[in-house]
Amino acid sequence: MKKNFRILAIVALGASLAACSTPKGGRDDATYYYSNKGAAAVAKVEPPPPAPMTNGPVGVPKIVYFDFDKYNIRPQDQRIVEAHASYLKNRSTSRVVIEGHTDSRGGREYNLALGQRRSESVQRALTQLGVPAERVEAISWGIEKPASMETTEEGYQLNRRAEFSYR
């Protein structure tokens, strides 16, 4: 029994030493580095820069605001929707996500549904203006991403919104 154990130990030691040795025909990286230190550097190939991200029409707000507990687009915000529709129609590869938001008043489920109705209202307006429906997505954040933490009417107004997020 002890003899078998010794033979097994010797075989295991030999195998581990063989695994640690430098392979035939291989190179020692430190020796290779110092022997080629003066060699010309290999040109590094850089990947092409990413395509510029589209952010929507220049100079046009990316937010449409809503009145309390409403999801219809206000007349003063209609020109914003029209400008985004024109931008999307002229750029066939652009896509947009409309993110609906609410103020903190009301329950979580109610606010998620209201935010969804707000984003779908903007989505519907864009498609009625000629934007293909498959390029516009409507989602709701409800109260999860407030623009203002103030509990004043001004703070609440900033949170009742739909935002254009270009992809």
Results as ranks from 00 to 15, higher is better:
108 R>L: 13
120 E>G: 06
37 K>T: 02
84 H>K: 02
65 Y>T: 11
90 N>I: 01
142 G>C: 08
97 V>M: 14
32 Y>I: 08
26 G>A: 15
117 R>Y: 09
33 Y>Q: 14
68 F>L: 12
52 P>D: 04
128 Q>M: 06
31 T>S: 15
60 V>H: 05
81 V>M: 05
133 A>Q: 06
122 V>L: 03
110 Y>M: 09
118 R>G: 06
109 E>N: 13
68 F>S: 12
82 E>P: 00
35 S>C: 03
95 R>E: 10
84 H>P: 00
68 F>K: 13
86 S>C: 00
40 A>S: 15
31 T>I: 15
40 A>T: 15
26 G>I: 00
105 R>W: 08
142 G>Y: 02
114 L>E: 08
61 P>A: 09
96 V>D: 03
109 E>Y: 06
85 A>Q: 03
62 K>I: 13
90 N>H: 09
27 R>T: 15
32 Y>W: 12
97 V>E: 00
113 A>N: 14
110 Y>S: 13
111 N>I: 06
47 P>A: 02
54 T>V: 09
64 V>C: 05
119 S>Y: 02
44 K>T: 13
133 A>L: 07
141 W>A: 10
35 S>N: 09
118 R>P: 05
79 R>L: 04
59 G>Y: 07
73 I>E: 05
125 A>W: 01
74 R>A: 00
69 D>Y: 06
103 D>M: 07
132 P>A: 12
